[in-house]
Design a protein around this nucleic acid. Structure first.
Lengths: 240, 240
DNA sequence: CGCTACATTGAGTTACCTCAAAAATTGTGG
DNA sequence: CCACAATTTTTGAGGTAACTCAATGTAGCG
């Protein structure tokens, strides 16, 4: 199904992903078991039942992590962008569902070989540990957004986050690198609501207000441009 | 200041903490560099500035992880109970503040020796990795609470969580083990508000309602008993 | 072109917040 | 041990941000 990679050194995320922190030998071992795979928007990659058969790194597109309750309410508990990882070696993901928010390309590592590699190369495990701590940090940061911000600030924070993660250029400040550049929203209004803990109508109204204030400009429903980044940041801080 | 441990095998959390998953040799090495330390309620253990000098495991009491913004608003992003860990080797905790929510006892591991040990014993790193993934899981679970639940369900979820973590007995269902047993709230109303993203008055009203419904019974301000656990769970699910 | 899915807009409701005061609890000095 | 202040919690009244329900508008697709 997937295509084996024969040139990690040509990889788009070579300098930012997990593998960038590895010495030559380990990076090489890793790339030997890696293969690329495309998924269309909406495809469920892992549904929370059995153990996922792979660990993966996002090459392009956005992956959403969803927690669902029996009654249907759901909360998106994470968005994984380019160079973020998805999965958990030596264990399961709990009741998490993993879905392609946009068309995506993944760098997949089949579970068993990956686990073997982890055991043979402690450095790999170290790097993964650091990435996991980073994820934990990000999750806690988002808890602040969910618990303490107004609808207006939540929406602004979300847009800010998407801009920064979509345009990330290695080692450069994303804002100065691509001012006013157009970008795609990875989520529908409903999904955005599930991410921010808001009703879709509230999302709509906040975006409308951002438009009339001249802070953003929309391009169709799924794309926009930020015209006044400092003011977007002010909104994200609840100082509108 | 701290007292060196000379009997890990008498440790209260020997069977649940990080070290429980280690082979004899590694556990032994770990216990040689560990020492115990008490902190009084309210003591700030790490304030988010420089690198913390230690990694620690909570023996008794509750530690709170706080994220603060310049304007004073703060969100408690985690509560660490007995046998949970606090800290991050090979990196810093970001802007996180760590504070004793109650009087606590910690099992401390000085940074450098602990990092050395991690490097020498991959199994230790593996175990820490798993614990970190568990923390990530818990953080995401709490995101659901913050984003999707009503005030009533938030408060019920909080109480449920405190009961379960306070009375945890190894390998047993906490509810059946200690029905209606009294327990201490680790947080003041203000802190509970900062944890749940609610005003303190709202917390108060919800607790009052739980009392009039006969679901709980308070013992002073900081302790209570759950009289009807199933109904508390129902509240936590938004089915009141 | 119509159909379906998604997004926006509007009107009315409600859950939670804010402000203010009373009550309970904790701490302190005589 | 009691009186007193300081702190925290509870209770009350009123306001508002966000929700719900319903209608309209817009994009995507066979």
């Amino acid at each position: 199904m997937g295509v084996h990679i024969n040139a990690c050194n040509k990889c788009e995320i070579r300098d930012t992903a997990l593998c960038s922190a590895l010495p030559e030998v380990e990076a090489d071992r890793l790339h030997k078991i890696a293969y690329r795979r495309h998924y269309p928007q909406g495809k469920v990659i892992f549904d929370g039942g059995e153990e996922p058969e792979s660990f993966a790194i996002v090459i392009s597109g956005v992956v959403k992590l969803v927690r669902t309750k029996r009654d249907g309410r759901q909360q998106i508990v994470g968005l994984q962008f380019s160079s973020d990882f998805v999965g958990r070696p030596f264990g399961d993901l709990g009741s998490l569902m993993v879905e392609a928010a946009t068309d995506i390309e993944l760098c997949c590592l089949t579970r068993k070989p990956f686990e073997n590699l982890l055991q043979q190369h402690p450095i790999l495990e170290r790097v993964l540990l650091q990435r996991t701590f980073d994820e934990l940090d990000a999750a806690r940061q988002w808890m602040f957004v969910l618990g303490r911000l107004s609808a207006r600030a939540k929406v602004a924070s979300f847009l800010q986050h998407v801009v920064e993660r979509s345009h990330r250029v290695v080692g450069k400040d994303p804002v100065t690198v691509c001012p006013q550049q157009q970008f795609e929203l990875p989520l529908s209004r409903t999904e955005t609501g599930d991410y921010l803990g808001l009703a879709i109508e509230t999302i709509s109204r906040q975006i409308a207000q951002l438009k009339t204030e001249g802070i953003i400009e929309t391009v169709g429903l799924r794309a926009m441009r930020v015209l006044d980044f400092p003011r977007l940041q002010a909104w994200a801080e609840n100082e509108g």
